[in-house]
Amino acid sequence: MVQLTAKPSRSEAARRRPVRSGRSRSNQRQMWLLLLPSLVPVVVFSVYPLLNGIWLGFTDAKAGYNVQFRFNGLDNYTKLLQDDLFWNSFKIGLIWAFSVTALQFLLALGLAMLLSAGLRFQWLVRPLALVPWAMPSVIVAILWKLVYNPDAGILNAALKSLHVISTDINWLGDFELALPAVIVVGVWAGMPQTTIALLAGLQNTPDELHEAAKLDGANAWQRFLAVTWPAIRPVAIAISSLDFVWNFNSFGLVYVLTEGGPGGRTLLPMLFAYQRAFGNGEFGYASALGNAMVIVIMLIMGLYLRRQLREAI
């Protein structure tokens, strides 16, 4: 039956523009058929888990088979607010995410401008700027563990030969230095995406405007503010927002570098939530932590984007 009714409408379509509604209905069916193979796995392994995860944050769910759990309202969140480890990990998470994002942005902007300045040796710098993107985060972490290694690492050796330090420093084991050391790794690992996005933005900068501003006697900084920045601004806002979200949700890098140590000094929110979920089996509490992370991200993104948009108008 479907065949019979579908056929004439198609041959009709070939002869002249068909009636809109009939065409769009068969289009709709085709579209859903094409979407179906992706839709099913996305719903089962992405949409459903996400909604379920949000809900679990309001229950006392535990790991383990056939464990009964029930809705417990805001219990998890009152517990959360009294949990020192929660405040600690979110404070560290925010320091980490802000520092990494800001440093990433400034360094990537500098690199992108150098790469578009028509210098020589680009063949060397360009691949170097991309490589961290292709590396597994576990390997990036191992790489830097080797660099930071107290006895055999190149960093201590270099600083000693330059007479900056006299005794070896245990970078990742020191209470004060661990977080900054880890932040440097975060910056290194996230440089490529940011650099490429900003490079693309720079390619949109009109050259004539630069020339004109120069003829008018504008110095480099004035030209940057008047010509370059307006052109890259949308890209800059987009990539710094994404970077912030990625960084706040980061896990693998720090897990391998320090496992949150020493003494919880690098315990990012995701590491804390992971420990709670798969160390202690507190699925409900860990999901509540996840919800708290979403709220923090939305608050910060909301404030940031609102301010940026207001400035743009």
Partner: peptide, 13 residues
């Protein structure tokens, strides 16, 4: 899917 932390997804998965 970029914004949500994996912890929310990984437990139900």
């Amino acid at each position: 899917s970029q914004v949500f932390p994996f912890i929310l997804i990984v437990i139900p998965v």
